[in-house]
Amino acid sequence: MRTKRWAAVAAAVPLLIATPALAEAPPKVPAGTTAGYVVFDRVAGKIVAHRLAHRAFRSASVIKILIAIDFLERTAKPTVRDLATLKVMLRSSDDDAASALWDRGGKGKIVTRMARKLGLADTSPPPAAKPGFWGYTSLSAYDVARTYRYLMDRADAKVRDLVIGHLRQATPCGTDGFDQYFGIPRALPKPWAVKQGWSGFGAVPPVRCSPTGAGGPLITPQSQARLPLVPDLGRPVLHTTGLVGKGDRLIFVLLTAHPAGGRWNDSVKRTTTLARDLYRSVSM
């Protein structure tokens, strides 16, 4: 029903899907890993690579982009404190900052507002039983690509410049101590602007990224086990999304779910390799 509800809206600002012209073969997804991706060429005005584009994943920290857009579009004059909260949320993926803005915006109502406004057919709020779990939002690679298109083509310049400006300065470390330079930052050439997402690897990274900061705990696989409406419960997810290339030519979205109990380092390696091979497969 969700797809039908937003189908008419989504059709109003379509992402044109075309058969990609490939420089190399499409990336091979490892057994046990689920990957959905969309690469949109802003110069050509079409999708040049896609796989499981409408498959729902739990958002993890990728939802922080929608939280930021919603807050900025509803707040005429953000305070200095507001701007500092947005900065650490977007650059260093700070969970406490996201939770503060999530609560102020009405929790799942943020997702509902943004899905309607942007025409996100595959995006829905967390289950009613877990309203504070913003990382349990469901979304697809297609919808994340639409979100970046909205920022670049339709959003007010002040909103675009603030959000994308922070994503251009994404820090190597999240404030929870995890290394967030997997995927795009490690595999693709600069320039890029990125928003990463990870969930299901526990609260403590195997090797703490440096420099470090104070952040909220990640959602563990144990805490996910009772929510059957959330995609890939019990499986860790790792997402790498953003703008790539001169003039922000490519919108690059890669969402991945890994085998249950999968280790951080192995999942990072798979995701980074997929990002590299996907980028190489796209002819520019």
Rank of each mutant, 00 (worst) to 15 (best):
T112N: 11
R91L: 11
V111F: 02
T112Q: 14
G106Y: 05
Y136R: 03
K87E: 11
K87R: 13
T123V: 07
A141M: 08
Y150K: 06
S93N: 09
K117T: 12
V111A: 04
T85F: 06
T85P: 00
Y136F: 15
D122P: 01
K117C: 11
K109G: 14
S93Y: 07
A97Q: 03
K109D: 15
W102R: 06
L90W: 02
L139F: 07
I110S: 06
G132T: 01
K109P: 00
Y142D: 14
Y136E: 03
T85M: 13
G132L: 12
G135K: 08
L118R: 02
T112E: 15
A97L: 06
L118P: 02
Y148F: 13
A129E: 15
D103R: 15
M152Y: 07
A100H: 12
R149L: 15
P127R: 05
V111R: 00
S138M: 12
V144E: 06
A84W: 12
R91Q: 13
D94Q: 03
M114N: 03
D103W: 13
M152Q: 14
G106V: 09
Y136D: 13
K107S: 13
L139A: 06
K109E: 12
L86G: 12
R91Y: 09
A115R: 04
K87C: 10
L86H: 06
A98M: 06
S93P: 11
V111N: 04
A128W: 05
